[in-house]
């Protein structure tokens, strides 16, 4: 009995010290990690809308606390065709990208994550304010690297410039990387649906 108690106590102590160490390191690194992720996110947005390096952007998404929103002046109201929703579209994160200089809307980015037989794929779909697709970017993936590279190299650029319309959007039928491309097209379809739903509202 006493030996079992000792075993439990030792494991408890090891667990507690481990937890404490992780807590301290997390406390130190969390703000830096947050900043890194923010910069990466902004990098993706800049890539999607081809925003020059010296141009600053503001973004707000459906997961942002309303109290943290950057105040937007009246000028924005005229440019925006639809408002930021209170909740995210199902399975997606909707983010509005603004030019910091004049608060004008640059476009909307939808982020979706889908599981397939090879793992997970995270895709960002950027839509310009004129309703055309700005770009589609694979932001994260655990799929076979070669398939992802192939899709990135050959099958994402055809989306650029297409009208974000469920009736008109065209997909490639033979990519040689069916699971990865299937996840990408699913997310593009969901993004287009969410965009059109948002426009209607």
């Amino acid at each position: 009995m006493l030996s079992k108690l000792k075993t439990a106590l030792v494991l408890l102590l090891i667990g507690a010290v481990s937890g404490g160490l992780i807590y301290i390191v997390n406390d130190i690194t969390a703000p830096i990690i947050f900043e890194n992720e923010l910069q990466r996110k902004i990098g993706f947005y800049s890539e999607i809308f081809e925003i020059p390096e010296d141009q600053e952007i503001i973004y707000k998404d459906c997961t942002t606390d309303p109290n943290d929103l950057v105040p937007i002046d009246g000028q924005l109201e005229e440019d925006v065709t639809f408002e930021v929703r209170d909740s995210c579209p199902e399975g997606l994160t909707e983010t509005f990208i603004y030019d910091k200089a004049d608060n004008s809307l640059i476009g909307v980015v939808y982020f979706g994550n889908e599981k397939n037989s090879y793992g997970e794929v995270g895709v960002l779909v950027g839509i310009n304010i004129d309703g055309t697709i700005a770009n589609v970017v694979i932001s994260s993936s655990t799929n076979t690297v070669n398939f992802v590279k192939k899709i990135e190299k050959e099958f994402l650029s055809p989306f650029m410039g297409q009208l974000a319309d469920p009736q008109l959007i065209e997909f490639d039928s033979a990519t040689g990387a069916t699971y990865t491309y299937g996840s990408v097209t699913d997310i593009v379809n969901d993004a287009i649906a969410a965009y059109n739903e948002g426009s209607d509202e």
Binding site: I14, L21, I22, V25, I28, T29, I32, I33, N36
Partner: peptide, 19 residues
Amino acid sequence: VIIATFVTIVGMVSKAFTY
């Protein structure tokens, strides 16, 4: 548990300083 603790720590540190 001991190894996992240090792996978690290096994971956080590398995420912070060598993203």
